[in-house]
Design a protein around this nucleic acid. Structure first.
Length: 272
DNA sequence: CAACCGACCTGTTCGC
DNA sequence: TGCGAACAGGTCGGTT
């Protein structure tokens, strides 16, 4: 469930349930999920800690704990995090279980096992390489112009590059480019100031609308809200997953192409 | 610096 | 119906 709107939604939902809660124990079922420290130390050091705050940075979820440490979680492709009653049926791909003092469980499930978590006093060691937050007001159109200068890369891979901007992935990079009317293969340093302003506006609009609709739930329903309801942005996708379907703006059939080893969806008429 | 590829993993969908 | 291929929201490290 991994892009910015889904992680932001997760952070908001978990904030209500987790802040102030204590962790009494941790079971690590798939050790490689724990990137650091080693799984035994991870579990031992988390026992007895309390969650003070829940935040998001890019696609990372950050749980601030007492004792000046942070639990960082990255869902990668298929990770899911949910607070459930101890008796609730458990997903067969559960990798880590946090026992909360109120008897409930914070369960991390992840079929593909790509998800990672870390317990650290130095979150900047993990997050330092990330680019700016796309919704930060400090990211102005002028600043975006500067970020694009000298970048000879194609727009699609650049938007999904976490060192450039933190939080966009395959779905939202495609949606942003469609909204901005820019071709995914366009070289980044060839945008006019007007096009850059359009790109800036598209980034904000797409992400803000997706967050307001609590993210995108795809057909596999891997990402759902705590009450099981889907995020509602899927119905508003213009291009992602819509190959052959009509462009909402001009009606031309949406095209899918390989860009940087991943599929890019775009309208051949609206996007140059 | 930029593009490409294989790893890391499992599950689901597609095409014949 | 069956079966292998292709594909999936992400990221990293190595090579060209």
């Amino acid at each position: 469930m991994p892009e910015l709107p889904e992680v932001e939604t997760l952070a908001r939902e978990l904030r209500d349930v987790l802040v102030g809660r204590g962790i009494i124990g941790v079971e690590v079922r798939w050790p490689r999920t724990v990137a650091a420290p080693d799984p035994e130390t991870f579990a031992r050091r988390l026992a007895g800690r309390r969650v003070l705050e829940v935040r998001r940075r890019g696609k990372w979820l950050l749980l601030g704990l007492d004792g000046e440490e942070w639990l960082l979680v990255h869902l990668r492709m298929s990770g899911r995090l949910a607070v459930e009653d101890a008796g609730a049926p458990e997903d067969p791909h559960t990798r880590v279980v946090f026992h909360l003092e109120d008897g409930r469980r914070l369960r991390f499930s992840d079929p593909r096992k790509f998800g990672r978590m870390a317990l650290t006093a130095r979150p900047e060691d993990w997050l330092g390489g990330l680019g700016p937050e796309p919704l930060d007001p400090a990211l102005t159109p002028e600043r975006l112009v500067g970020m694009l200068r000298g970048r000879r890369v194609r727009l699609k891979p650049l938007l999904a590059d976490q060192r450039f901007l933190a939080g966009l992935g395959n779905i939202y990079a495609d949606e942003v480019l469609w909204r901005a009317g820019l071709h995914p293969l366009r070289r980044a340093d060839t945008l006019t100031p007007e096009e850059t302003a359009r790109l800036h506006g598209a980034i904000r609009e797409v992400l803000e609308e997706a967050v307001a609709r609590r993210g995108t739930t795809l057909a596999d329903r891997r990402y759902v809200l705590p009450d099981g309801r889907p995020g509602e942005f899927a119905a508003h996708l213009a291009v992602y997953g819509r190959e052959g379907a009509p462009c909402p703006r001009c009606g031309a059939p949406i095209v899918r192409a390989r860009v940087g080893g991943r599929s890019a969806h775009f309208c051949p008429r609206c996007q140059r």
